[in-house]
Design a binder for these strands. Sequence first.
DNA 1: ATGAAAGCGCTAACAA
DNA 2: TTGTTAGCGCTTTCAT
Lengths: 336, 336
Amino acid sequence: MTDRRRRATVKDVAREAGVSRGTVSRVLNGQPYVSAEARSAIEAAIAKVGFIPNRAARSLVMQSSQAVGLIVHEPHSLFVEDPNIASILLGANAALSEADYQLSCLIADTPRDVERLARYLSGGLIDGVIVVSARVGDRITAAVAELGLPAAFVGHPRDIGSAGYVAIDNRGAARAITGRLLQTGRRRVGMIAAALDRDSGADRLAGFVDAMGSKLDPQLIQSVPFYSFSHGKAGMQELLERAPDLDGVFASSDAVAAGAMEALREAGRSVPGDVGIVGFDDSSWALRCDPPLSTVHQPADQLGRAAAESVLAQLRGEPISSPVLLECPVVWRESA
Amino acid sequence: MTDRRRRATVKDVAREAGVSRGTVSRVLNGQPYVSAEARSAIEAAIAKVGFIPNRAARSLVMQSSQAVGLIVHEPHSLFVEDPNIASILLGANAALSEADYQLSCLIADTPRDVERLARYLSGGLIDGVIVVSARVGDRITAAVAELGLPAAFVGHPRDIGSAGYVAIDNRGAARAITGRLLQTGRRRVGMIAAALDRDSGADRLAGFVDAMGSKLDPQLIQSVPFYSFSHGKAGMQELLERAPDLDGVFASSDAVAAGAMEALREAGRSVPGDVGIVGFDDSSWALRCDPPLSTVHQPADQLGRAAAESVLAQLRGEPISSPVLLECPVVWRESA
DNA sequence: ATGAAAGCGCTAACAA
DNA sequence: TTGTTAGCGCTTTCAT
């Protein structure tokens, strides 16, 4: 324990102001029935003794902490690379801040983290949670459900039960951008599908299939495990080998698209001359590609905001709102 | 308040196990002097009633919460773009996790956030803090100091008082990479210096000046406000206008370097043929540049880890350790 | 409008 | 080894 000098308590304030602790508490919480004199005496006393309310004590009695957790459950590397997470965080923070809630971002990196986190969540120091990128069978998801903690998920794994979630319309957006790619006159269009174990990955593939309709050639779908540059590159190489006549590609993320463009360049194909390529995310990769990437814009901060608002509503006792599906506009640039 | 069913307390466990609350508390905290029978009865009871300790209550009596905050006080956009922050976070989390502390990442985006945060920190729900990218005159810094919270800063603004800090050796690294650039035979070497109001920015400039020695031409130093692509581009354009004969550039971050390379390309200069360029950070920008950027690698996760260890040591009652300065190796690639 | 007192769930000092 | 008891700092009836 550090040798911090003892902090003033309501008791000190009460003594200093010559009133009871109950009255002090009343002014602290902005409750009515406090005389003007008492109020000003107390305010003066608070300033004088440097009183700062102890939140642990308040949480204990109120059974609430005015804090909401945002759990990021990503494999190490993705967290570092994924620019959407920071935007989600910022969006959630903005909404919570307006409601005077504190956002606490909690990260689950190792199994040990997950266990500690599960205990932490049950400890009453967090009133609700936003869960980013949960996966099926997630221990955190189970803990949240078991605790009955107000929660909102960003993305929608299948087993989150009745919890609220907000997501982007991955399928619709994939359909839209594939459709536009087709309209540029491409005849042999393939897809590098990543992360099929995640709802986002599976839905993007579904949207692609929707858009291709009867023109779909399953040979032109290459699946890779993660949304990454290197998997994109490898996926493209596979695809080129199988279908040298391919003239269009939908990459399931910008990073994947960037990798694919590298493979294309190495194979001597020009973009968008020989092959048109589109991505997904509108992340910083998109503008750094050469030529700049046509892609789907993700309103990541809106996702964070919507998730926070869902939690806030539950905290107010409102029923869990129906899922929010956010639109993602297609951003047309030069890669297709 | 949500209609969560009442949670079991130590009292319920005690009743179920036929012992007193004191004994329950002892097994909860792994203390000695508990009979084997009592222990197993209690463990069974805990499982049976589904007891989960209330951390607010525990924090209240222990005056500690086993949680450490990591405060990110960055302007909005930088947080999204800066890959180092995520690495710092992960490094800090790893160290804290080993000591069974919960990391809570708190973000300060608006003045309102800052105020709420200052209150939150004083509330006793956080035992110590790691502060990332504090700036001079920072309200958060003042609050931390005033509270006497165990703290460690990442970076070293001038006014953090006696608090511990960990930082990279910006000056030494800047000197080293400028030196290597000079060794490639460049004669007219300039610098795009960013964020001179931050210690990192100022120190990188100082290192450049060190390395240039008498060859320094102040005309070849262009200062820009932020570490960003667009400022890098603008800075390079300025520089080219003032010194068309320039053949080497030290950009104070990879993002700045990427912007500078774009300006160079537009001006028809080849890299590294006409001008050699080096950056700083070894962020994802570096590999995406064409050609890949020679730069300085920042051990961001180590920074996080060291900061966490400093806080942990203070929590154990050890005196504040002397500042930690981490070495940054130069990564030599193809841009110079 | 205010004070007294009970109690949130837990730990720790003291008895036994 | 264990039970009892007194708080931790705050809010909230219930009287007054």
